[in-house]
Write a protein that binds this DNA or RNA. Structure first.
Length: 572
RNA sequence: GCACCCGUAGCUCAAUUGGAUAGAGCGCUUCCCUCCGAAGGAAGAGGUUGUGAGUUCGACCCUCGCCGGGUGCACCA
């Protein structure tokens, strides 16, 4: 499968335009906005009429006079201001859907140039629990990685965890004086957090302690063996808990190079930039100024503090250099929240100053809000922990499954509940435009109605149940060629053909919400088909054709959801 | 003060990147289970796309000015 129906029409149109002596490079064909106009439409004539200084309808008609598509559709028409409309023949539509059925990629065309893309996401902090703040980065980053890979790109996912912060002064002091071994084994991160808080409180009461705690941090940074050992254990214990959550979410990383990995590179990097004149000292700090960039003119990028310490940006630049050298990427995507935009503008500008040519993107996203429309927090004002949140999602899903399907064995109910609960959390996040803040609502994300994961999973389950039913009743459920004739079949077939294009449009702006929208429309279109066209109750070729169409729909649903990191159960 | 993001139906959000009469879900009003899962479907009400100009065949989308909300802005990450 190398050409979709849409792209065939597009290239025919381009050929016709060329013969008409018109620049054909921008000839594009898209699905119609309204079924009354046919199946596909093109607005080339209107786009080009401006520069040709001709009437758009005239341009359209001159293109049409050279257009040969009689094997694919009815004679194209000119409508409105100069749209060219296509109504695909049932035979051509049937052929196109049958081709997709036999294609492992379901009609998805590989990206013409495979790129190396590094995706930097999730990045929790050691000795702290993962919380809602990490949800979007983790889910969005994972989905983008899956989609990029599916389109044939070489993807490197890297979890740049915060394993080298100032918090370690407190953690180490606490470890030495206040550690509860038993608690550490039961819940490592909870115990590390307790140590951190307790030391914090002690410092409040006894400011003289502050110096001692700071000294523990300095010792760590200077390589003190005892402190290093404590640090290593804290990192390892934290990783264990992170991995449990990633396992639950079915998310993996190719690399896990945290901030500490770049420690040794920081001092030489700053020195080098000072020597070659990229950076300069200002008010005691080492800065990179951007005098040629009006937006950043007064926003220098600080890479070393007055006291000699390094900053967030320093590590990011060292990381960027390392990645350049090791992977020679075409793109690096940083999946972090919108508030960090200025920071990345500075880092990217500094990177370019250092000669980095790679395409660097900040894949920004909005915040998760509580029902009160303020940043989501617990009642006591703390961050909501991811582990607890996922557990609650599964628990809520389980009670729904147990209620609706009490006959299923307990073990299967739990398995299904995991898919529904985790799918709901992921989908609620991904279905929205990434830049808008979104309001977290259990009720909405777990609803079986509307644009939710459970609704889509249910559409899949419903199709599977047709086959189970057919099997049990001895109906022949073998699949034979799809023959499109009914309007509901046409609509479903056209929607299925749109799958590949949708994935490419997601990549244009890193927006999985377009895939969510597509899958929802697909499920919706299937339900129309399901109402209008009896499947098991029809006979012969029509039944096997409709079964095949339903089966193909299920495959696209399953594949699409898997690209969002969401699984489908066989029943629910 | 400056910069960035966002203002779309009562609520939560879309809109194929400048295309045809701005679409869904929730909620509301009516219908449809002797019929493949009603966990579904059909129909209806609901809009000056914050606001005022501009650009053009055509604007939710692009430009400029306002209004309202959020976030960030030199030694945290």
């Amino acid at each position: 499968m190398d050409m979709s129906l849409q792209s065939v029409l597009q290239s025919r149109l381009a050929m016709a335009a060329e013969r008409a002596g018109i620049d054909a490079s921008r000839a594009s064909v898209t699905p119609v906005t309204d079924i009354r106009f046919g199946d596909y439409q093109s607005n080339v004539a209107m786009v080009l009429s401006k520069e040709l200084k001709k009437n758009p309808r005239e341009v359209a008609s001159s293109i049409l006079s050279y257009l040969e598509v009689q094997d694919l559709c009815e004679p194209p028409t000119i409508a409105g201001a100069g749209f060219i409309n296509f109504k695909v023949l049932n035979t051509a539509l049937s052929d196109a859907v049958n081709a997709i059925r036999l294609d492992e990629q379901l009609g998805v065309v590989m990206a013409p140039h495979s790129k190396t893309i590094i995706i930097d996401f999730s990045s929790p902090n050691v000795a702290k629990p993962m919380h809602v703040g990490h949800i979007r980065s983790t889910i969005l980053g994972d989905s983008l990685a899956r989609i990029s890979r599916h389109l044939g790109h070489r993807v490197i996912t890297d979890n740049h965890i915060g394993d080298w912060g100032t918090q370690f002064g407190k953690v180490i002091y606490g470890w030495k004086h206040l550690l509860n071994r038993e608690a550490l084994e039961k819940g490592p991160i909870a115990e590390l957090v307790r140590l951190y808080r307790e030391v914090n409180a002690l410092e409040e009461n006894d400011p003289s302690l502050r110096e001692t705690v700071r000294h523990e941090l300095v010792k760590l940074q200077q390589g003190d063996p005892d402190n290093l050992k404590i640090w290593e254990q804290a990192v390892a214990l934290s990783w264990k808990e992170f991995e449990r959550l990633y396992g639950l979410l079915d998310i993996t990383f190719d690399e896990r190079l945290g901030e500490s990995f770049y420690n040794d590179a920081l001092a030489p990097l700053v020195e080098r930039l000072l020597v070659d004149g990229t950076a300069e000292i200002s008010e005691g700090a080492v800065c990179i100024f951007f005098k040629d960039n009006p937006a950043l003119e007064e926003k220098p990028c600080l890479i070393r503090k007055g006291d000699g310490g390094f900053l967030y940006a320093t590590t990011d630049l060292a990381t960027l250099e390392y990645r350049e050298k090791r992977w020679k990427p075409d793109s690096v995507w940083y999946v972090t929240g919108a508030p960090q935009q200025l920071h990345f503008e500075q880092v990217f500008a500094a990177g370019r100053r250092m000669g980095v040519k790679t395409d660097l993107s900040h894949i920004a996203f909005g915040s998760i809000l509580g029902e009160d429309r303020k940043m989501m927090k617990t009642r006591s004002g703390e961050n909501v922990e991811l582990g607890g949140l996922l557990a609650e999602a599964i628990e809520r899903a389980l009670s729904v499954v147990a209620e609706k399907n009490p006959d299923l064995p307990k073990g299967e109910q739990e398995k299904i509940a995991r898919m529904i609960g985790l799918g709901a959390v992921k989908y609620a996040d991904l279905m929205q435009h990434r830049l808008t803040d979104y309001v977290f609502s259990w009720e909405k994300m777990l609803s079986f109605q509307g644009n939710t994961a459970p609704y889509l999973q249910n559409a899949y389950v419903r199709i599977r149940s047709i086959f189970r039913k057919g099997d049990s009743e001895g109906v022949n459920v073998s699949l034979s060629p799809i023959m499109i004739s009914d309007p509901a079949e046409r609509a479903l077939a056209l929607k299925i053909l749109k799958f590949g294009e949708t994935l490419h449009s997601v990549m244009e702006d890193q927006r999985p919400n377009l895939l969510c929208l597509y899958l929802y429309e697909l499920a919706d279109t299937f339900h129309h088909f399901y109402e209008a066209c009896p499947i098991l109750k029809s006979d012969g070729e029509i039944r096997s054709s409709r079964l095949a169409l339903a089966d193909l729909t299920a495959k696209v649903l399953q594949t699409g959801l898997s690209l969002l990191g969401i699984g489908v159960p066989e029943r629910m």
